[in-house]
Amino acid sequence: MTPSINLTSYRHADWGGSDGSEIVAFLGEDLTQAHFAWSFADRAGGNVLLTLEATTEGLQGLVARYEPDYVHPVSGAVVGATLLIPQIDRETLLALDTPGETGADIVLFHTLYLTRDSGLKHAEFAGNFRIMQGAPN
């Protein structure tokens, strides 16, 4: 079952990044050799406007890093985790078409895909990606 997760960003600011708080933690798994692709479309099944894939830290894309000392949020046990750190630059968010209505949010649909060494490709989660206008800067 693919969970539905809705995310929020602000149009005049970067989303995620190593200094941000947008992190996906895969508990107990080392997925640094797996391939991640995070698609953002104008609607479910619509045109893909942006895809995040592996990049180096500090650039737009995805950075996967394994931390063996990561603590399980429920049990408190050290289970290790692969931390997937996404980053979307504000220039990218600013370049998206705005709705006709002033101040309206831009709502995209996102899906995170994980392809393992075996070639199996799974959708980890999907949902709305809401880009709030915020106060321009």
Binding site: S21, E22, V24, F26, E124
Partner: peptide, 8 residues
């Protein structure tokens, strides 16, 4: 926001 994914 942190999203935890655990495969048991």
């Amino acid at each position: 926001m942190t999203i935890h994914v655990e495969r048991g």
